[in-house]
């Protein structure tokens, strides 16, 4: 009898902190698009552009489901994809909720209960219904650059179209990725994620390229899932401020910071 109840419970839930979690990873996802030979150079440049050694971002996340649209705002500080610190600034009800992720350990601080909670690994590994990101985005490690083999499949005056196939031992769920890169800015335009059977699972679009900090940067990322169950869902990330390769106080990446920088 518990089976139904359990399935339902898991289903009805959205993993706590999922949004913040996926952010930790999302920022660095394109950085992984690494390849060999000619294409490798393209991917490398894309990676360098999107990914600084460090990044300080202010961003909004707009999550649309078939039912509601919800906006969150947050500040993010990160060094590589080893360490990151996130603080929720909007909506006011959630203001001051902080997350710290060091490698694969993660903590959350909730001002309302004045408590730092270490999120257990089993929880971090949960699937997150309700967001358009799979746990794979979360679980991946810093070695993603090893994960795909790049191949140029088309090219026109404006764009390269690059196919990325996961290497046999790469721990990625996708069967194939297809990415377009603009020639002018050497920035990604779209990334299509396919499953093993070749069905399109989701699309990530990078739009509204602006000057941000020391570089041109896509300031609006749109993730569209195509799974039947996620029909109508959309997740948009708008980066309002960004600074790259700036020094970040190491203090952010300590457990003390969760409470200290919560205000």
């Amino acid at each position: 009898m518990n089976k139904t109840a359990t399935d339902r419970a898991q289903g009805a839930s959205v993993l706590m902190a999922s949004c913040a979690l996926f952010l930790c990873c999302l920022c660095f996802m394109p950085a992984s698009l690494h390849a060999a030979d000619d294409v490798q150079e393209i991917i490398k440049r894309v990676e360098d552009r999107l990914n600084g050694k460090t990044a300080v971002l202010t961003l909004s996340m707009i999550i649309t489901t078939s039912r509601t649209t919800r906006t969150m705002k947050m500040d993010s500080y990160s060094v590589g994809n080893e360490k990151s610190f996130i603080k929720i600034t909007y909506p006011g009800k959630d203001y001051g909720i902080t997350f710290l992720k060091i490698k694969d350990s993660m903590w959350q601080y909730v001002p309302r209960i004045e408590k730092v909670i270490k999120i257990p690994a089993s929880m971090m590994l949960q699937s997150w219904m309700g967001t358009d990101f799979t746990n794979d985005d979360l679980v991946r490690e810093s070695s993603i650059s090893r994960d795909y083999e790049a191949k140029l499949i088309a090219e026109n005056n404006d764009e390269y179209e690059i196919e990325l196939l996961p290497r046999p031992d790469a721990a990625v769920v996708w069967g194939r990725l297809v990415m377009t890169v603009t020639k002018k800015d050497m920035l990604p335009a779209t990334a299509n994620y396919f499953d093993e059977e070749g069905a399109l699972v989701r699309t990530l679009q990078y739009t509204e390229v602006k000057q941000m900090g020391d570089r041109l940067y896509p300031s609006r990322w749109v993730m569209t899932p195509y799974d039947k169950e996620k029909a109508g869902n959309l997740t948009i990330i708008e980066i309002t401020e960004a600074a790259f390769d700036v020094p970040i106080d190491e203090e952010y990446f300590t457990k003390r910071a969760l409470k200290r920088f919560s205000d």
């Binding site: 839930s13 959205v14 706590m16």
Partner: peptide
């Protein structure tokens, strides 16, 4: 800590 029906953070 959990997720509210509106996908918000919930904790108490």
């Amino acid at each position: 800590v959990g997720t509210g029906a509106d996908y918000s953070f919930a904790a108490d």
